[in-house]
Simulated assay, not measured.
Amino acid sequence: MSDANEFIANLLMARLSHFAVGLAEALEKLPLPIALPRGEHINLVGEFRPAVARAYELVEDQPMPEDKKGEFIAVILFWLAASDLVIAYVHSGEDYRADAAILNIGFGENELADLLSWLSDQE
C-alpha cells in the first residue's frame, strides 16, 4: 500500500470509528438498550462489526415507532456498508471505495444526529 493509500485508510478508519461511537451511544439509549463494545482499543472489524450486525437483528424488536426502527436500521446499514467499503479499500486501494465509504458515513451520521435528537426528546 502506498503512503497516500495508507493515509486515506487511516482517515477512513478514524471517520468510521467516530461514527461507531455515536452509533453505540444511540443504541444504548433505546427502550431496550443494546450495548456494543466500547473503549479506546476496540477492534472495529473483529469485535465491533459483529455486534453491529447483531444489533441490526435486535432493533426490530424495540418498542418504538416503526418509522424510528426503520431509521435505526438505515443507520446500522450505513455503518456496516461503510465498514465493508473501508475494508475493501484497504485491500484494493480503489478510490471509489473510499469515496463510497465517506458517502455512507456522511449519510449515516446525518441520520444518526436526527435519531439522537429524537432519543433525547424521549427522556
Rank of each mutant, 00 (worst) to 15 (best):
S17C: 08
L23N: 06
A98C: 09
L80N: 09
V59L: 02
L119A: 10
A88K: 09
V59N: 01
Y89C: 04
D61E: 10
P37C: 11
P50E: 06
W118Q: 07
I76C: 01
P50C: 07
N43Q: 13
A55S: 04
P63L: 05
N10S: 14
L23D: 03
V52D: 02
A82N: 08
E111F: 12
F19M: 11
Y89A: 04
Q122N: 04
N10R: 15
A51R: 13
I73W: 03
A53M: 10
H91T: 07
E71T: 08
S120N: 14
A24R: 13
I102S: 03
A113T: 11
H18F: 15
R54T: 06
S92V: 03
L12N: 06
D3K: 10
P65N: 02
V59C: 01
I34Q: 08
A35W: 12
F19D: 03
W79P: 02
Y89V: 04
D3R: 11
F7Q: 12
L112K: 11
W79L: 04
G46P: 05
L11I: 10
V52R: 06
N104Q: 14
I34S: 05
S83F: 04
P37E: 10
E66L: 11
Q122W: 09
A101I: 03
A24G: 15
E28K: 15
L116Y: 07
L85F: 09
L58I: 01
I76Y: 00
P37I: 10
M13N: 13
D61Y: 13
I73Y: 07
D61F: 13
A82T: 06
F107G: 07
N5G: 06
